[in-house]
Amino acid sequence: MGLAKRIIPCLDVRDGRVVKGVQFVDIRDAGDPVEVAKRYDEQGADEITFLDITASSDNRDTIVDVVSKVAGQVFIPLTVGGGIRTVDDIRLMLNAGADKVGINTAAVSRPEFVREAAEKFGSQCIVVSIDAKCTSAEGEQKKWEIFTHGGRKGTGLDAIEWAIRMVDYGAGEILLTSMDRDGTRDGFDLELTRAICDAVDVPVIASGGVGNLDHLADGIIEGKADAVLAASIFHFGDHTVGEAKAHMASRGIEVRRMAAKPSA
């Protein structure tokens, strides 16, 4: 026995509401983020991640408000990603009650930002989000490239090399999303997950493509991920976090069983 593998529900938040779309189209409303976060906490989520996809920077205050409200009621680690570009953005989120921030596009535009952030706040709160897409042809050696802007913009950066570099710069954790699988419900890109997990010594969260509970277990067992992140399967009532944990445990994965509530 030892460290448990983590299940992390992800809440995409736009203008103060949880939303979920398939590859950034067909957006559906999935509720009030504070209520959704509380529900997942009660179901046994090990952490919660908020991804702010608010289009206009005018509405950035709403995510701060959401995080602050959740942090007063939910006592598990909270991560916030989306639009984190400066040291001040990070400070704002940590002060609101986030424990970690996810850095994505800003790391690609200026890698030194990751180093500065880790030096300032410690690696433990710097998660580098990597959106990767397979660019090798059938039959060729597998190769993945970093994409930004929701998978629309290629960068020419090799995903494995990039992950190693980001850890070297101080990333304490990698959130790895397969842009080929995101929203498809076909399961994680296990080859990609395995390749990144083998390449770095920090924890890796697998993301993108979960459609059933076996996918979560596959991410841990075959992908070697330390944690698995999913949105749709939890948001629309397909499964609870508790069911996901029971299933993972049935496949031999060590998960956290919730402790009794504090005595009155």
């Binding site: 026995m1 030892g2 460290l3 983590r6 090990d46 304490g172 924890p203 330390d226």
Partner: peptide, 21 residues
């Protein structure tokens, strides 16, 4: 230490991050 492994021989990540007993 670098190169720590668990009982099953799997590589242990650093930082030690998550829920442990």
């Amino acid at each position: 230490a670098k190169g720590l492994t668990d009982d099953a021989g799997e590589k242990l990540k650093i930082p030690h991050m998550g829920w442990n007993e």
